[in-house]
């Protein structure tokens, strides 16, 4: 048993302190959430689980917290371009022919 009041409410700590599931068959999910396909993990051992896409996609709208270890994207040169909008119509996307 546990005392809910002792658990800190801050977000990052949940991911940092959560323990690894060691028996995927023991986990039950709330109504409407599908378990991983059973046949994928019949011989699973040592926490080595396979997950089907349908199962994995269910996390998309829930796990949105930015990872603590993610460096600032601009510091590693990872910045979005706006090429999807007006730029592409002006034909500027064609100036380079250096396709490899």
């Amino acid at each position: 048993s546990y005392n809910a009041k002792t658990i800190p409410p801050s977000l990052p700590s949940a991911l940092a302190t959560a323990r690894i599931i060691d028996d995927i068959g023991q986990i039950t999910y709330p109504e409407g959430i599908k378990s991983p396909k059973v046949e994928l993990n019949i011989n699973a051992k040592d926490g080595k689980f396979k997950y089907d896409r349908e199962f994995l996609l269910q996390f998309m709208s829930i796990c949105k917290e930015k990872p603590d270890m993610l460096p600032p994207l601009d510091a590693i040169g990872l910045e979005p371009t706006d090429q999807n909008h007006s730029m592409s119509r002006g034909g500027s996307g064609r100036r380079s022919a250096s396709a490899m």
């Binding site: 991911l15 959560a18 690894i20 997950y51 994995l56 996390f59 998309m60 829930i62 796990c63 949105k64 917290e65 930015k66 990872p67 270890m69 993610l70 460096p71 994207l73 590693i76 990872l78 910045e79 979005p80 371009t81 090429q83 999807n84 380079s96």
Partner: peptide, 25 residues
């Protein structure tokens, strides 16, 4: 960029990084 070993961490990364359609050439 980063390493991860759980489903939950993967999605945290996915939701905070740039998709291929917005990457530079």
């Amino acid at each position: 960029v980063i390493s991860f070993d759980s489903v939950e961490e993967f999605w945290g990364l996915y939701n905070n990084i740039i998709p291929p359609s917005q990457l530079p050439q």
